[in-house]
Design a protein around this nucleic acid. Structure first.
Lengths: 347, 347
DNA sequence: CTGTTAGCGCATTCAC
DNA sequence: GTGAATGCGCTAACAG
């Protein structure tokens, strides 16, 4: 247990224990075919020397690295950090480590990250593609021989299985909820974004409006507090002011909420508010904000489970084809009724 | 670029390119001592075959793994995910990968995580110790030959360099601020915790109160909304109700805020509120919540920088002793004046 | 400039 | 039950 320059190796342990390297190896790997006596002895020596098998050597012998890679836009983003947490838990349950890198939604950085991870011979990958269409990404994925799962945003042509929440249905349901509340002018604030998820939510909003015979009104200008203030103020002073706002992402929801507060617009009396994506204090602010909630942890968990399913059942044709069939796992969202939409939940 | 069972190796590339393995190796590693012509040729073959060096083999040759490990209580916790993001950025800048594991504040799980990371031969470690005193952890750290940095909570006896925010000074300053506002009965809600950070903050609160000749009143009972409600209600109906609350952690701040809202207690008129640790919506709620803000990203960044400093300058005696001298890096906190403490910031 | 070779630490034959 | 030898992919000596 002393501090040493180089970590001990099998042969060092073997020598110290007066056995062959094979025996030591067996002890580390479960102790099969070793007499209880020697096993105990070797184990003692191992502990005493603070020996830990060198994973790199195992890997070189053709074994798995017991690491999986996760490439997400940002680690600090609550959505992705929750995904990461869930994925890490699954990895741990599968005796594996999670390596996290941030792409910052930059396709180039994403590719670089992927290449490094592959160089490290991760057993599998989970990616939230910066750009679902990216040629570079698609090229890379096609050339890969290890399992990859996409999260949050599917890769074009379903090159890899994806786990996403049902943005379309969630947004449609949310819009319908606002319609049922009786709001006449429901405006959708998309927030600046070219992301797949936002597009799906826009589609959902449109679908609900259309099937209700309403005109869809989308505003894509909101990208910060100022633009939100401008947009909302313009609408309010315009000819046909909205009586409900459907915001498609967290930041937009928060900006809208702040602006409405600042302008002393009563929520939901004058304008109702419904946001897509839940956040920690949505229930704490007054009025509390109703949202469409995504199964965040579940996305991470399911993605990781799918990955390990492929990893472990790589030979089993049945398993593989089962996964193959499920190219796109769509997880349901939930409407969390709080006050800002006009609901009055009991708690 | 075709999907293959086994990734190509140096010798395969060498054969395909009609050169020796050394040449290929040289090309991968910067292309020194290789004629421009062969370099270009080999590079072409490498690209064509989709060759990527196997890190494991490099490691076996005695090189760094270019990975660092991060052990934190939770990846989903905003504080630690921000740390992680910053650390990852530094790792990336140093051409390294970040492996994240969650200890859930369980010393046993923490030790296991550390052992696995060491087994994977990470070059260095950043740890937020679940328990600063843990014998197991201290034993392990002592036996280690790789650099370790503690964050958020130092390890007992300064066995390893630590990067923490100045919880003591921050809390003292916050309390002083409340005192200067003229509040007479400032109660400190610690929240249930045995953590180092909370203790430091308690010390800070006490120090400020004492030097102002006030009696310190600490309440350690708050652990969820219900207990917060009970505690606050009791105080309010008691003989000497507080006119200011100093909450020592995020969740406690939020519980207290919710309770005060629910009870229709005017903030800061009837009771002022100051929290330790900032959170996303502290500025959005009404009234906005004043807080002592920790330099979250900086903690992660500095820790990682220190780590790489040790990693790179491991031979340089000067560098090493410099780090050795700075066993404890204490980062300053800031008071963010918002409304809940009685301030009226312009924005 | 370029190629040959040895060996990193380990699991795995195959003997004993 | 046990051990000696081999090779995983790569880089660093050392020759040419």
């Amino acid at each position: 247990m002393k501090k040493k320059g180089t970590p001990p190796t099998v042969s060092e342990v073997a020598r110290a224990a007066n056995v062959g390297t094979t025996t030591v190896s067996r002890v580390i790997n479960g102790g099969e075919r070793v007499s209880p006596k020697t096993l105990a002895h070797v184990q003692r020596v191992i502990d005493a020397m603070g020996y830990r098998p060198n994973q790199a050597a195992r890997v070189l012998k053709g074994h798995r690295t017991k690491t999986i890679g996760l490439v997400i836009p940002s680690i600090a983003d609550p959505f992705f950090s929750s995904c990461a947490e869930a994925a890490q838990a699954v990895a741990q349950a599968n005796d594996s480590l999670l390596i996290v890198t941030a792409s910052h939604n930059d396709p180039h950085s994403e590719l670089e990250n992927l290449n490094i991870l592959i160089s490290h011979r991760v057993d599998g990958l989970i990616v939230a593609p910066a750009n679902s269409q990216s040629e570079g990404l698609r090229e890379l994925l096609k050339s890969l021989s290890l399992p990859v799962i996409a999260v949050d945003r599917p890769v074009a042509d379903a090159l890899v299985p994806s786990v996403v929440s049902d943005n379309f249905k969630g947004a449609r349901f949310g819009t319908q909820h606002l319609i049922e509340h009786g709001y006449k002018r429901i405006v959708c604030l998309t927030g600046e974004s070219t992301l797949f998820t936002i597009h799906e939510r826009m589609r959902g909003y449109r679908a609900a409006m259309e099937s209700a015979g309403r005109a869809a009104t989308l505003n894509t200008s909101v990208k910060d507090y100022r633009s939100a203030e401008y947009a909302i103020q313009s609408m309010l002073s315009g000819p046909n002011p909205p009586d409900a706002l459907f915001t498609l992402k967290n930041s937009t929801t928060i900006y809208a909420f702040e602006v409405l507060q600042k302008l002393n617009v009563s929520i939901p009396k004058t304008i109702a508010l419904l946001g897509f994506d839940d956040f920690e204090l949505a229930s704490t602010v007054r009025p509390s904000i109703s949202v469409i909630q995504q199964p965040v942890e579940e996305i991470g968990r399911v993605a990781a489970e799918l990955l390990f399913e492929q990893l472990l059942g790589i030979r089993s044709v049945t398993t593989q084809s089962k996964v193959k069939r499920a190219r796109l796992v769509t997880l349901e969202t939930r409407l969390i009724q709080r006050n800002s939409c006009g609901c009055s939940p009991s708690n």
